[in-house]
Design a protein around this nucleic acid. Structure first.
Length: 274
DNA sequence: ATCCAGGAATTTT
DNA sequence: AAAATTCATGGA
């Protein structure tokens, strides 16, 4: 295991806050096994030290966990009120993850009207059907399928994706490496309007893809939790998607996505504890 | 057993 | 243009 020092980073919060699905705690001492495309690596935090398996390098790990984000600046922008201040205090070190756009797209198509364990199962199944075996130390897994390779409809259904199977199949047919290369060049508004053209992708999922894999930190995905939270905390009357987005972007600007993640984490944990 | 879950598309008012 | 219905599946 190699390592480097980290600040304003908490591995557990970052992996387990619901933004990302392909991780597994493999030992009770907080050693995590993480999948990213065709990479399988181990990572563990010991205080300020972040340790990671030798099959990845420091540049990769820093990029994946967005350790290049200036959290002091971000905290300064999103500490707009008591709720956010408390959420940041409690979950300090929670960062967004830079996911792969294709992987992120398929994962969030699976997420509609679902839950985290089930989404994880769907992705695992898809990877077994369409990916390749990969390993790290004594652990083994499957790579995430390449773009255009999730093509067998029967197998998509056998991955227990339900009514989403059709969307995954169609999207797999439409997108390509070139599609993503083009998508990465667009700004937030343009990316989002491209994404919602795809079957099975509405505003919410498009915002997830923008925030979690396309570097658009102003994206503010609104699921039922966030909608409830915004109503409760800020007394928003309208439950129209675009009204809530306008409010958020007006309040937190280019870091609205980070605000979303802290709100989400806090509201969800406060709720499940009662 | 029945109902719902971190939505989107389609159909109906 | 807003509201109800449908879509599969696992888990509570």
């Amino acid at each position: 295991m190699k390592s480097f020092e980290v600040e304003n980073f908490n591995l557990e919060y970052t992996l387990e806050c619901g933004q990302f699905f392909r991780y597994k705690k493999v030992r009770d001492d907080d050693l995590y096994l993480v999948n990213y495309r065709d990479i399988l690596f181990l990572v563990r935090q010991e205080g300020k030290l972040l340790r990671y398996s030798k099959n990845v390098d420091e540049t990769f790990v820093k990029r994946f966990f967005r350790l290049d984000d200036d959290m002091e600046e971000i905290y300064a922008v999103i500490s707009s009120d008591d709720f956010l201040k408390k959420a940041i205090e409690k979950y300090k070190g929670l960062r967004l993850i830079r996911q792969d756009p294709w992987e992120c797209m398929v994962s969030y198509i699976c997420s509609s009207a679902s839950n985290i364990p089930k989404i994880q199962m769907n992705i695992e199944n898809l990877s077994q059907f369409f990916g390749r075996p990969i390993a790290c130390k004594e652990f083994s897994s499957y790579s995430f399928p390449d773009v255009k390779s999730i093509s067998n409809f029967e197998n998509i259904q056998q991955s227990k994706t339900g009514y989403r199977a059709r969307y995954i199949h169609e999207v797999n047919d439409i997108v390509s490496e070139e599609y993503f290369n083009h998508l990465k060049k667009l700004d937030y508004d343009k990316s989002k309007s491209e994404l919602v053209k795809l079957p099975g992708i509405g505003e919410k999922i498009a915002d997830c893809i923008c925030l979690f894999s396309l570097n658009h930190l102003e994206a503010f995905p609104i699921d039922t939790w966030i909608a409830k939270a915004m109503k409760k905390i800020y007394g928003l009357k309208s439950d129209k998607y675009s009204d809530i987005v306008d409010f958020a972007i007006n309040k937190w600007g280019k870091y609205a996505g980070y605000a979303q993640q802290y709100i989400y984490m806090k509201i969800r944990n406060d709720e499940t504890r009662k």
